[in-house]
Design a protein around this nucleic acid. Structure first.
Lengths: 364, 364
DNA sequence: CTGTTAGCGCGTTCAG
DNA sequence: CTGAACGCGCTAACAG
C-alpha cells in the first residue's frame, strides 16, 4: 500500500511570493494547465497506456516502470481527470442521493449513513434536495443521469424520477418509503408497528381519545403509521373516530391553527404526532397555550430528535434506526452494482418505542 | 387516495419473469444505451454539430432545424452527458463545498445558503465532510480537482487544501474562518464583536467570574471569540484570569469531565460557551448536576440552535446569520468565476446577541 | 511487458 | 446557415 503517496501534497506548494508571480490568479485568463497522463508519460519516457496501467494497477507493468511512473506522478501532482475516466468507462463513481428536505435532521442522518458505506466502497456521494416537489425530484434524477451515476438512492415523492432513472439503466434504491411503479430495491421502517406501539402505549395508560396527527401525502410511511394507529386502537378495544385524525400537508401554512382546532374541538387526552416536525409543532402549540404534558395531554412523536430528550418533560417517541436505514440502502445499492440481476429486495427495519415524560396516565 | 396500495410492501413486487422480460434490469449486462447527441441528430436528419448548436442555443441554426431538433430530443429523452461536456470545456458546473461536520446544523445551514444562490446561477453543489481532518480535507480538494470543479467553498481546517486548489487554478472561498497562506476570498463573522457582546452582557449582570469555554483550534473564529472575551472583560474593568479559560479539542472524549472540573475548581458564576456543541455539553453537565440557570450559573452560547429556544430556560446566545454566510460565500465565488481578477475580498457579517432566560443577575 | 490505435460524447473550429 | 474534422484525457484492445 502506497498510502503515503499523496500525504504531503503541501510540500510542493510554493510560498506566497512565488504563487502570485508564478501561477496566474484563478480564472484570470492565464489558465493553469492541469497535468495529464500524457504529461507524466512523456516525463517518464513511456506511453500513456503504460502510465495508465501503472497508476491504477491494472494490467502488466514492470516494477521499474511502475515505480518511476508513480514517482513522477507524485512529483508533478497528478490528479486523474474524472470526466475523462467517466466518459471512457461510461459510468462514474458518484452515487446520487435525493432527499426531501436537506434541513431536516432525519434526512441529514440518512445521508450520513449512506455516505459511510459508500465511502468504504470507494464511491462518492452527491446529495440533492427536492423540497418534496416531484418536479425537482425529476430534475435531480436528470442531473444524475447526466453525470452517469451508476445508482441513485432516494426518498421518493413521486414515481417519475425512479422510472426515468430505471429506464436509463440507473440502479435505484428507495428509502424510507416506497412509491415507484417499477420494481426496485427499497429499505423502509416498519411503520405499521411503530404506529401500533405508540397507540397501544397510550391506550395502555388509559387514554381513550387518542388523536393522530399525520402528514397528508401518498407516502407509504404515513400510510403505515396510520394503519398502525388503527390496529393499535382495535387491539385496545377502542373505536376508530375519524374526527380524531388530522392529516396536514407538508407545507401547510396553517399547521398550528389546525392543531389548535383539534385541541379545541376534539379535546383529545393524547396525541400521536407521526413525524418529527409535527411533534415539534404540537409541542409549540401546547407550550403557547400553557398546557402541560402529560397532565393535560400526552404526546408521542415519531422519529427521535435531539431536542426531544432535552426539553422537560422529554418526549416519548418511536425511534427509528435512521443511520442504519441509510447504511442498508447503500449496501443494497452496492450489491446491485456489483452483482448481476437479483430480484428487487425490500428490507424492513424495526423502530423502537422510547418512553419519556410526555406520556402518562390519563387524568380524570 | 390509494393509501393502501403499498401497505404490504411485498405484494406490489413483480414476479421475476416480468422484470427480466420487460425492462432490462439495471446493470444486468443488457445495457440501456443512453441517447446521445449523434442519435438525435441522425433521427432529425442533421449533423451532430447542428444538433449541439440547436440544443444549447449557441451559434446559427435555422428556426425549422432547431424546432425539429428540440422536439426529437424531447421525445427521445435526451440528457446531455455531463462528463463529455466537462471534458470538452475543461470545467464542470459543479461547485465543491467542504465542511467540517455534516451532522452539525451550523454547517448544514451554511450549505443550504450556498446551494440557494448556486442553484439560481445554474451551478450544482457537491458537499463533502472532512471531519476536521486536514488529510480528509485535502482528499476532498483532490476530488474536486478531479471533477474539474471551477470553484470550491470551504470551512478550512488546514491550509493545504486551499493551496492545492489554488495551484491548480481552482477558485476558493473560505467561509466561517480564514486559514490559507495564499490570498483568497473569504467571508466570516465578526467573532470578536460576538465574544465581546456576550462577555459584556454577562459583566453587565454583575458577573465577575466569567469562564470562557472554547475550542482548541487554530481557527480564526475561535481566536476572534477569545479576543472578544478579553476585550469585553477589559471594558467591564474585569481582570483576565487564564484559569477561567478552558479550550477543548474538537473531539476530546473527556469534554464533560473538563467542564465539570472547571465548575468544581473555578466556581464561575457565568460561562460563555463559544460554539453550539460546547453550549450543549455545558447544558448537559449542569442538568446532570442539578444546577439551575441562571440562579447557579448563567450561560451564553455562540451560534443559535433550535433546542436553545425550546429548553427551559432558553439559552442566551450570540446568533450568527448562518444562511447569509453561505449565500455570501456563494456570491463571492460566482463573482470570481465570472469576472476577471479581483483582489481577494473579505466580507465580515455581524452577529447578534439574543437574550433569553439562561442569563441573569449574579446571585449573592 | 509495452506501444499503437481507437473511441467514449460533446463543442468548436473552419470550410462550404 | 450547415457539416466535417478534430481533440478534450483516459482506458481497452490488440499487436508486437
Amino acid at each position: 500500500m502506497n498510502r503515503c503517496r499523496w500525504c504531503i501534497p503541501t510540500e510542493a506548494i510554493q510560498p506566497d511570493a512565488l504563487v502570485t508571480t508564478q501561477t496566474p490568479h484563478p480564472n484570470s485568463g492565464g489558465e493553469v494547465q492541469p497535468v495529464t497522463l500524457a504529461d507524466i508519460a512523456r516525463e517518464a519516457g513511456t506511453s500513456a497506456s503504460t502510465a495508465s496501467r501503472a497508476l491504477n494497477g491494472r494490467g502488466y507493468v514492470s516494477e521499474a516502470a511502475r515505480d518511476r511512473l508513480i514517482a513522477v506522478a507524485n512529483r508533478m501532482g497528478y490528479v486523474p481527470n474524472a470526466s475523462a475516466r467517466t466518459l471512457k468507462q461510461r459510468r462514474s463513481r458518484v452515487v446520487g442521493v435525493v432527499v426531501s428536505d436537506l434541513g431536516n435532521q432525519f434526512y441529514a442522518r440518512l445521508a450520513a449513513g449512506i455516505e459511510q458505506v459508500l465511502r468504504e466502497a470507494n464511491y462518492q456521494m452527491m446529495v440533492l434536495g427536492d423540497n418534496s416537489e416531484p418536479t425537482e425530484e425529476v430534475a435531480g434524477a436528470r442531473t444524475f443521469i447526466a453525470m452517469r451515476a451508476p445508482g441513485v438512492i432516494m426518498t421518493p415523492v413521486g414515481s417519475g424520477a425512479t422510472e426515468l432513472l430505471r429506464s436509463q439503466g440507473v440502479a435505484v434504491v428507495e428509502v424510507d418509503r416506497r412509491l415507484a411503479g417499477v420494481p426496485c430495491d427499497a429499505v423502509v421502517i416498519d411503520n405499521e408497528r411503530g404506529g401500533r406501539e405508540a397507540t397501544m402505549h397510550l391506550a395502555g395508560l388509559g387514554h381513550e381519545r387518542i388523536a393522530l396527527l399525520g402528514v397528508a401525502t401518498n407516502w407509504t410511511s404515513d400510510a403505515g403509521r396510520l394503519q398502525g394507529y388503527r390496529t393499535g386502537l382495535r387491539k385496545a378495544g377502542l373505536p376508530f373516530d375519524k374526527r380524531l385524525v388530522v392529516r396536514i400537508p407538508l407545507d401547510a401554512p396553517d399547521t398550528e391553527a389546525r392543531i389548535a382546532a383539534l385541541l379545541d374541538e376534539r379535546a383529545p387526552t393524547a396525541i400521536f404526532a407521526a413525524s418529527n416536525t409535527l411533534a415539534e409543532q404540537v409541542w409549540r402549540v401546547l407550550r403557547r397555550r400553557g398546557l402541560v404534558m402529560p397532565g393535560d395531554v400526552s404526546i408521542v412523536g415519531f422519529d427521535d430528535s435531539p431536542w426531544m430528550e432535552m426539553v422537560e418533560p422529554g418526549i416519548t417517541v418511536v425511534e427509528q434506526p435512521t443511520l442504519e436505514l441509510g447504511r442498508t440502502a447503500a449496501r443494497l445499492l452496492l450489491r446491485r452494482l456489483r452483482g448481476p440481476t437479483h430480484v428487487p429486495a425490500v428490507e424492513i427495519l424495526q423502530p423502537r418505542l422510547v418512553v419519556r415524560g410526555s406520556t402518562g396516565p390519563v387524568e380524570p
